[in-house]
Design a protein around this nucleic acid. Structure first.
Length: 674
DNA sequence: TTTAGGG
DNA sequence: CCCTAAA
């Protein structure tokens, strides 16, 4: 059977040491109402693990355990809470009701009752991005506090506002025990004394990370919790609503018993079995939000809904084509800072909501003389990165495999990705900003300008020596000391383009797309940024190569499914309507050369028009023919002289006839030969 | 790379 | 215009 699924991985997860317990803890934050949900997410459990320690983020909060307990309670009574959640969602304009119905299976407990779980007002639980709070507390409104609180739950990047240059995050991958590979991801950040006292920092601290969780875990260990390895701003996994009616439970690795049907995600189209003995699983990367936003204004849900909607629309095939994940669309999700109202309508800009946590980081540029410039000519841009998305993965695993092995497999795949090379891309309004030399303001990123969509994306790194190349003094480093054979990694254009395609490619890159465009969800703080705040490109550089454990024929197999086709750089070309004169030239050329010779037409009539490709000409001709056939009232755009349209029809008819004749002739010839 | 088509 | 499958 084939199992396809998208996996989200909160970048913040990097700081989470992935002990199963931690994962569990995380899960508790993401509740799924249906068993199906849980089952689906099962594979992501490990991811959750990776992301683990989410709760740690709240480590400083004394009532953490209590919170957990409360959460559990919430879980049990989740049904009763759903309504509330829905109401909240209903307020979100951009929330697609339908998609909600279909996908919003797992009300976010936090959303449902934020207060019950997170101490919004608890100063101690301030944002991981303590920087934000600590540096300019007075700047934050209560709303921001909430956001900050949320931040602490998910933030994975800690950057000192004061010493941005220091910040660095590292991911340590340790080959764990048999069944579990534990990835210890730590975020290291140099912070100023003040910021170091922030929760986020503490949480990041290795010690904090390693110990608090267990404690936490113990308290909830035997509780049955809805598995949620994939709760993110993008919401629950794309599960079919029909499947949800169970109580999700993911006690442990032993909680197997998943049958094929159970595992299957309806949303995914079961593809022709690869082999009965194998389960093919596709892990998609969806922002894995370890800790749901604390916002109670419903925005979070709105985002989630959008994501869900997006996801739900996908049809999964055995091997999804890039089309399933149009990069263009996806990249919009990366991040969005536009107003809520705008958000919903921007082509799938479900990315983020301003209400979420903020990761404030500084750019190198602004690092120097920042304070001095503040309030003057060099306003700071504040933004946050909500999460990075993990590349899509395809995993094949025998049905007889244990859940534990499945988890391990997924974990391995994730680790492989994390250990791979990634670089960061910056997108503004969905477009990649490739020029690294222009200033933020030049690129349109400014504090006073409402950044509609500022996003970050992770894309295959060009660098083969990722760990060594941190040209930009990138704050994040991903380390993994578990080199594995490269297997079945199917890089897409992005990688291959960079010549970084290593390892055996066992499967076709069906995701020419950009699943690999893990991106960062970020939010731009529309509020004037405090002096200390600035923008920094959160970067995570990984090897471009994704080492995947080599597998025996029948062994677990995982395939990081796709990479970015053209990374994020793929910008849709600007629309350049044909002018009448161009149409004229086109018609003339086609009259002469005929249809089907677009290259010649191009060379003949548009040789100098660099932006007009033969495909464009072909498309234009197609539309011209269509236009000519419809009534003038139905036509749009710059009117094309009827005379030209007539010629188009005549020419089209003529050449169609010619082609038909040619075809007949060839057929005749064939017959004669036979 | 081109062509042909669907999206 | 984009994206692909085919050629």
């Amino acid at each position: 059977m084939v199992l396809q699924k998208r996996l989200d991985y909160g970048f913040n997860g990097y700081q989470a040491p992935p002990t199963p317990r931690a994962a569990r803890s995380v899960r508790r934050r993401c509740l799924f109402k249906s068993k199906a949900d849980v089952q689906q997410m099962c594979a992501f459990d490990l991811l959750a693990t990776v992301a683990g320690k989410l709760l740690l983020e709240g480590g400083n909060s004394p009532p953490l355990l209590d919170q957990v307990s409360k959460k559990e309670q919430l879980v049990e009574g989740s049904d009763g809470k759903q309504e509330k959640t829905e109401n909240i969602l209903a307020d979100e304009k951009s929330c697609d009701q339908d998609s909600y119905e279909r996908n919003f299976l797992a009300p976010d407990p936090v959303t449902e009752n934020p207060n019950a779980i997170l101490p919004h007002n608890d100063p101690v639980s301030r944002p991981a991005s303590g920087i934000t709070t600590s540096n300019c507390p007075e700047k934050h409104s209560s709303a921001e506090h909430l956001a900050n609180d949320d931040c602490k739950l998910r933030l994975g990047i800690f950057t000192s506002v004061v010493n941005p240059d220091y910040s660095a995050c590292k991911i340590f991958a340790n080959n764990g025990s048999d069944d579990e590979i534990r990835k210890h991801i730590k975020m290291e950040s140099s912070v100023t004394p003040n910021s170091s006292t922030c929760n986020g920092i503490d949480l990041c601290h290795p010690v904090a990370c390693d110990k608090k969780p267990s404690r936490l875990v113990n308290s909830v260990d035997d509780k049955k919790l809805l598995f949620c390895g994939n709760h993110s701003p993008c919401g629950p996994p794309p599960v079919n609503r029909d499947n949800k009616k169970l109580v999700a439970r993911d006690d442990d690795d032993n909680s197997s018993g998943f049958t094929e049907s159970q595992i299957r995600i309806k949303t995914f189209r079961p593809s022709p079995p690869i082999g009965d003995s194998k389960i093919r699983k596709l892990l998609a990367s969806r922002p894995h939000k370890v800790a749901p936003p604390v916002k109670d204004d419903g925005r979070y849900n709105a985002d989630a809904e959008r994501c869900k909607k997006h996801i739900s629309k996908r049809s999964f095939k055995r091997q999804r084509s890039p089309r399933d994940y149009p990069f263009k669309k996806r990249k919009f999700y990366v991040c969005s800072s536009m107003s809520d109202s705008d958000e919903g309508n921007s082509g799938g800009a479900i990315g983020s909501s301003p209400t979420l946590s903020r990761r404030v980081i500084k750019t190198q540029d602004s690092a120097a003389g920042e304070r001095a410039s503040f309030h003057t000519s060099n306003p700071q841009v504040k933004l946050k990165i909500r999460s990075f998305r993990v590349p899509e993965l395809v995993i094949e695993i025998p049905e007889t495999a244990t859940v534990g092995s499945l988890k391990k497999t997924v974990m391995d795949a994730v680790n492989a990705i994390l250990g791979g090379g990634l670089r960061v891309g910056v997108l503004l309004q969905g477009k990649m900003i490739r020029d690294d030399n222009i200033t933020l303001s030049q690129s349109g990123i400014s504090q006073d300008k409402k950044m509609d969509m500022l996003g970050f994306s992770l894309e295959p790194s060009i660098s083969q020596a990722p760990l060594q190349s941190f040209p930009d003094n990138r704050p994040c480093q991903l380390l993994h000391n578990d080199p594995q054979p490269l297997v079945r990694y199917t890089p897409a254009t992005g990688i291959s383009r960079n010549g970084i395609q290593h390892g055996k490619l066992g499967t076709p890159p069906d995701h020419a797309g950009n699943d690999f465009d893990n991106f960062v969800e970020c939010d731009h703080d529309s509020v004037l940024s405090p002096p200390e705040m600035s923008l920094q490109k959160p970067a995570a550089q990984l090897k471009a190569i994704v080492p995947v454990p080599k597998m025996e024929p029948d062994a677990l197999a995982m395939v990081p499914l796709k990479k970015s086709k053209r990374s994020d750089s793929v910008q849709r070309r600007i629309r350049r309507p044909f002018t009448v004169s161009e149409v004229e030239a086109l018609v003339q050329a086609v009259e002469k050369l005929g249809t089907g010779r677009w290259r010649d037409v191009k060379l003949s009539a548009f040789d100098s028009a660099k932006h007009r490709t033969y495909v464009d000409l072909k498309d234009k001709w197609k539309t011209l023919v269509h236009t000519a056939r419809i009534s003038p009232q139905q036509r749009r755009g710059e009117p094309v002289p009827q005379e030209l349209l007539d010629r188009v029809l005549a020419t089209h008819a003529y050449w169609s006839q010619q082609h038909a004749k040619q075809h007949l002739k060839s057929q005749l010839d064939t017959c004669l030969l036979l």
